[in-house]
Each structure stands twice: as C-alpha cells, then as structure tokens.
Amino acid sequence: MEDREEIVLEAGVRHDFIDELQNVPGGERVRDCIQCGTCSGSCPVSFFMDNTPRKLLAMIRAGMRDQVLESNSLWFCTSCYMCTLRCPRQIAVTDIIYALKRTAIREGRTGGAAKAAALASAFTDVVDRRGRNYEPELLTRYYLKTNPAAMLGKTGLGIRLFMRGRFPLSGERIRGIDEIRAIIAKANEIGGL
C-alpha cells in the first residue's frame, strides 16, 4: 500500500458514482457515513484488503470510481454482514459491496482479484445449466480457469471427500430447467434491479 494518498478536492468530486448506488436498498445511505471505522474494525478480513471498508466508503463519496472498482477489497468480502449489523448509520455495506462486485465484473475490472470473480462466474455458469450447483464441476471449472496446477494439489482432498461420499461423480439437473432458462432469458432482457 502506498503512503501517499490521492487527494480529491471537493470541487472535483464526481457525484455520478454515488448515484449509481441509489438502486441498492440502503445504498443511498453512503452519504450518511460518519467515517467512524466500525465497519473496518468489525470486518474479519479487513487486514487483507488494500482499502478497508471505511476507506472504501470515503472513496465512493469522493467519486474515485476506478480505484474503488479495482480494489481487491470487494473480493475479500465474505458477506458475513458484521459491518452491516454494526453500522451506526444503517449503511448496508455488504449489499453495497455486492453492487460494486457486479459493476466490476460487468466492466471486466477484476484484475487484482480475478480468482474470486472467476469463482462467482463459474458458480453461475453451473447453476444456469443445471438449476443447481454441483460442487465437483464448480471446482473443476474454477481451477481450469484460474490455476490448473493448483487442482493437482487438491486431488488428495478430493479423494478423501469422495471416499466419504461427499464428492459425488455425477450431478443432477432439475426437471424444471426450462423454467430456469426462461427466467434467465427474461432477466437478461430486462436487466438491472
């Protein structure tokens, strides 16, 4: 992390980024943030992030769109909701981070944390086709996309899970897969939230 931070003067602040969050329930509350740091102190993974949640909220308000969307912080969030629970201003931090992840994926800006984004995308690919997640396929797709060599390192664990009936060799597809297809087609047609 760099010691020197970018300074954004008020006159130069872009407000259109914060407006993008208006559609997220509770998203408009970013404006109410008092920078108390409760979110960062409550976050179980903030020490791994390049920008802590508190700082991320300040950056959103400062209109630092590129830096926010390219921050690895988004992809460390595990959706534990501790920040959302404790925020004294009732800011739905977790949901805001979800919204930022979606924008980052849409714009292909997941460079620094491509693995977590790839995992989320692999998951939806599997469910789109089957209607359900099938863990062995998910992990195979994910590792092939990100780091095929790492899959070898996981073979032992896979075998141990298989031996205990926890890694089935064939997955199911729901009978109503046509309903899922229709839902996907329609949702893609409408888009947004």
Binding site: T78, S79, Y98, A99, K101, R102, I105, A117, L119, A120, S121, F123, T124, V127, G131, R132, N133, I174, R175, G176, E179, I180, I183, I184, K186, A187, N188, I190, G191, G192, L193
Partner: peptide
C-alpha cells in the same frame, strides 16, 4: 419438489435481477 439453487453469494455478485428471480422461483 424440484427446488433450484438459492443463488448463494455468487449470483448476487454477478447479476442482480437474475439472482432475485432464481431465488424467488
């Protein structure tokens, strides 16, 4: 009968309306 995936955290990270609709089925 014939339930589908709830969407988990992944759908919400990728496509929002679809995440809600898949879950709502």
């Amino acid at each position: 009968e014939d339930w589908n995936c709830c969407g988990a955290t992944s759908y919400m990270s990728v496509r929002e309306l679809l995440a809600m609709a898949v879950s709502a089925r």
